[in-house]
Nucleic acid binder design. Structure first.
Length: 319
DNA sequence: ACTCGCCGCTACTTTGAGAA
DNA sequence: TTCTCAAAGTAGCGGCGAGT
């Protein structure tokens, strides 16, 4: 190959094409027109003596040669980006910035108040904005820089999204204190709700997309059982309120159940079945991997999660 | 040694036609 | 709908010679 024929812009085009698998979208990502990307692709084809991408309908399918370049090209660009990053003596105390997080109200309720208070003491110039999970697709929001971090259960995300497991979040069952059906059956707080009763009672569910089933229904389904979800609400807090004032049971993260039970008349019970609870993860754009303020704030979140004792719950921690 | 203007090259844009 | 390819025009850059 002729290295002289390769300039950095062509490498950027190749990287964008590998990400987007589309000439038009690759151009949008790096600020070029579609014909310009097409021309750049042709120059790449000549320089590397390979077709690199073959059109199949509306897709541009990478050749094995192109696929083999994906990781080294990405790593090289990250290195270059790092090399050109201005060397700043990062000091949280003087940092002026707003961080935007996204996640369930579970986090805005449990994590954000102590986290923001703690950060305010060491980095008074920082502000935080917490957006609801329903706002949209995590990869897209990260790519458009509309959020800095997302806190979510395992998601299908783009390959350029970095993530780390935060903590396991096993489900607990909550019901109103004095729930008549549980009382009649002699089930007391902390005990397991019998399976038949669990399936017979009405359930409330936190659902951001209106879906009336969740992890619990999947687990029940595997046993050939079903439950009656009669109320789907977009926030855990709303679910807790509904449970406190109604006949519902609800499966919610244990950490949330414990916190909600401090302020609402609800009791915590154990589920009659094992409900898989994948680890909650923190997601961010890989281009922020080494950005000092971003890395610092991620470290602070991990630290705060540890301080809150979330990691002590015996949920499954993924990789 | 430096500046200026010209020239050629390269890559960009928009527009449009045609193909998959 | 999205791609390739082509044409026409524009802009930026580097090389080079002439002038100061």
């Amino acid at each position: 190959m002729n290295l002289n024929a390769l300039d950095l812009n062509l490498v950027r085009v190749l990287d964008a094409l590998l990400r987007e698998k589309s000439v038009t979208r690759a151009g949008e990502q790096i600020g070029l027109s579609q014909p310009a990307v097409s021309a750049a692709l042709n120059r790449l084809r000549h320089a590397l003596n390979d077709q690199l991408f073959v059109r199949r309908g509306n897709d541009m399918v990478p050749t094995p040669r192109a696929e083999s370049l994906a990781e080294p090209v990405r790593a090289a660009l990250r290195e270059i980006e790092r090399a050109f990053q201005p060397a700043t003596d990062f000091d949280p105390a003087t940092l002026e910035r707003t961080f935007t997080f996204m996640g369930a109200d579970f986090f805005s309720m449990l994590l954000m108040p102590p986290f923001a208070a703690r950060i305010a003491a060491v980095a008074p110039g920082l502000s935080f904005r917490f957006l609801d999970s329903a706002i949209g697709d995590v990869s897209k929001l990260l790519q458009e820089d509309r959020i800095d971090l997302a806190l979510e259960r395992p998601l299908e995300v783009a390959e350029w999204v970095s993530s780390v497991a935060l903590f396991g979040s096993p489900f607990a069952i909550i019901a109103a204190k004095g729930n008549a059906a549980l009382g009649q059956a002699g089930v007391v707080e902390g005990e397991q709700v019998p399976l038949d009763l669990f399936c017979a009672l009405p359930h409330a569910l936190r659902s951001i997309d209106g879906s009336m089933s969740g992890f619990t229904d999947d687990a029940l389904g595997r046993m050939g059982r079903t439950r009656r979800v009669t109320l789907a609400l977009p926030h855990f807090q709303a679910v807790a309120l509904a449970v406190a004032g109604g006949p519902y049971l609800a499966a919610v993260p244990t950490q949330f159940a414990v916190e909600a039970a401090k302020s609402l008349p609800i009791g915590i019970y154990r589920a009659p079945i094992a409900i898989p609870s994948p680890a909650v993860r923190m997601y961010w754009h890989a281009r922020r991997d080494d950005e000092p303020p971003h890395r610092w704030i991620r470290e602070q979140i991990l630290d705060e999660v540890g301080k809150l004792g979330f990691k002590d719950w015996d949920g499954e921690i993924g990789d």
